[in-house]
Design a protein around this nucleic acid. Sequence first.
DNA 1: ATATATTTGTAGTCACCCTTACAGAATCTC
DNA 2: GAGATTCTGTAAGGGTGACTACAAATATAT
Lengths: 196, 196
Amino acid sequence: MTTNISRPRGRPRRFDPEQAVAIAQRLFHTQGYDAVSVADITEALGINPPSFYAAFGSKAALYARTLCRYTGTEGIPLAEILRPGRPLAEALSAVLESCARRYGADPAAAGCLVIEGARCKDPEARNAARALSTTAADTIRQFIAATHPEAAERLTDYVVTLMVGLSTMAREGHGADRLLATARLASLALEQELGA
Amino acid sequence: MTTNISRPRGRPRRFDPEQAVAIAQRLFHTQGYDAVSVADITEALGINPPSFYAAFGSKAALYARTLCRYTGTEGIPLAEILRPGRPLAEALSAVLESCARRYGADPAAAGCLVIEGARCKDPEARNAARALSTTAADTIRQFIAATHPEAAERLTDYVVTLMVGLSTMAREGHGADRLLATARLASLALEQELGA
DNA sequence: ATATATTTGTAGTCACCCTTACAGAATCTC
DNA sequence: GAGATTCTGTAAGGGTGACTACAAATATAT
């Protein structure tokens, strides 16, 4: 007796949507949203366009699902790193180091899917990525404001600017080692500014 | 007697190529290379496609000319800022401040034309932008190496990462004031690292 | 078995992109 | 003027993109 939860009525799917999202995520992360065509996706999935549109609605909608999946798995775990009570300079430095490590971990899928997606041409996909990007910035800002409200905007801008820069440099081919060196250098400013 | 330098033979042009490059530069800077179509350009210039191709060869070739023009006019004057003998921390901080000011000066054409062009989809245009980007990085690296050879790569990576980040944030709508605050914060790390 | 529901595969639509063929117009040389 | 030369405008070629109409296929429900 397998998992037999009363299959739906019609002809069954020949592919697993969840796995398809994973494959699409890798494509988007590797090549960028604009550079991936629906034809690329359907070929990678071994299906035809109608199956794709029936399952996901549109390229942008599938992208939104990959973004959702990304934040839950490979994205930077801001909530974990920015634990309340953690010293500010230490916490922000940890964010930058985490970015350096993750963005440079896989050379074939370098950088941040969200940050890179925020520059794509398609408005729907771009807005989806921007929304997540804004949420992340807000998380950082609120963490800072809890202890240093007067410095929240300035420090958030600084950290986000570096995250964006690190993602870009990762895509330019910089490995985790070089990114980490940059992150550590950037942390010096945080320590100095916050009197660590 | 006007400037009468023996006009060329055939039918005269109805537009000024130099002015056309300036107009195209503004389009590319405002919208990004990929988002500007040849139709956009020809419409902005008030000419038809054949005139465009006869004068410039291709969209990428025109873009290369706009890049050339940009570095000579609106680009960061690295050669001026990185004058030999200038204290390193001061010089690199000046680079970052200059970026902050220029990238945020014109909200309609924010960021750096070269940096943003380095991510476009067209290989020819991308390589043209990358070449200039690499040249700029080399200039910075050599200036650092003149006095601090062991720190050249690390500091160059740091400065370039911030330049890229500043350009992106400018395109996200950050004004020169916010960019400058980030640049000044980033300079703290340089001063600390270099014992200023 | 019949009806219903859902997916699949073929083939194609429609829009937009960069680029060019071609003939006519405007200028210079002789 | 005649001829050579260069630009201009119309119109379209050739490619790629996202997306879909439609009928055949495969399952469940009764």
